[in-house]
């Protein structure tokens, strides 16, 4: 599974940080001050509860990104920061899509869901929630198809990534 090509303006960073109050604010400031917009951000506790793992995707020019990475590394609470942009790594994302479907539309909606390996996690007379996991492209494709129905709500987790084999995330 390939990530966005190198030189693209979307970057995927994995940041390993101390699990302390204020860390997220320090990190967000590094991006904001340089005019980078954070597209997605996933934070959760790591195996060692004293540390957290952040996966951040952000847009901006590549030379500016190098400055962002160096500035992140400089933060006392940041253990390490790796740019995974363009690397062959495992990338996953999850989306919940709530769509309005009539009884007649239901079959087609389920066919789409089935094709993408999505699960139906809620089902009412007039709506259903589909849960899909996979790469960003896959999620985009399914969401594009179900737009023919009325999408009531959409929630995406943002990317989580992990380096393969012996590589460190």
């Amino acid at each position: 599974m390939t990530q966005v090509a190198n030189g693209s303006d979307t970057h995927t960073l994995s940041v390993y940080v101390a699990n302390k109050p204020g860390v997220l604010a320090r990190i967000a400031q590094v991006f904001a001050r340089r005019g980078f917009n954070i597209d997605s951000l996933v934070v959760s506790s790591s195996v060692d509860g004293n540390f957290s793992r952040m996966t951040i995707t952000a847009k901006g020019d590549p030379s500016g990104l190098q400055q962002v990475i160096e500035a992140l590394r400089k933060l006392i609470d940041v253990m390490h920061c790796v740019d995974h942009t363009g690397e062959d790594i495992v990338v996953r994302e999850l989306a919940l899509v709530k769509i309005r479907v009539t009884a007649e539309e239901r079959t087609e909606a389920l066919q789409i869901a089935d094709h993408f390996g999505a699960k139906t996690v809620d089902w009412t007379e007039s709506s259903m929630i589909l849960m899909v996991t996979g790469t960003t492209d896959k999620l985009d494709a399914m969401i594009g198809l179900v737009k023919k129905f009325q999408v009531i709500e959409l929630v995406r987790t943002g990317k989580v990534v992990m380096a393969r084999g012996a590589e460190e995330t």
Binding site: Q66, Q67, E70, A71, R73, K74
Partner: peptide
């Protein structure tokens, strides 16, 4: 001494 200054 500060790596973030290199190339800034």
């Amino acid at each position: 001494v500060d790596p973030s200054e290199i190339g800034k």
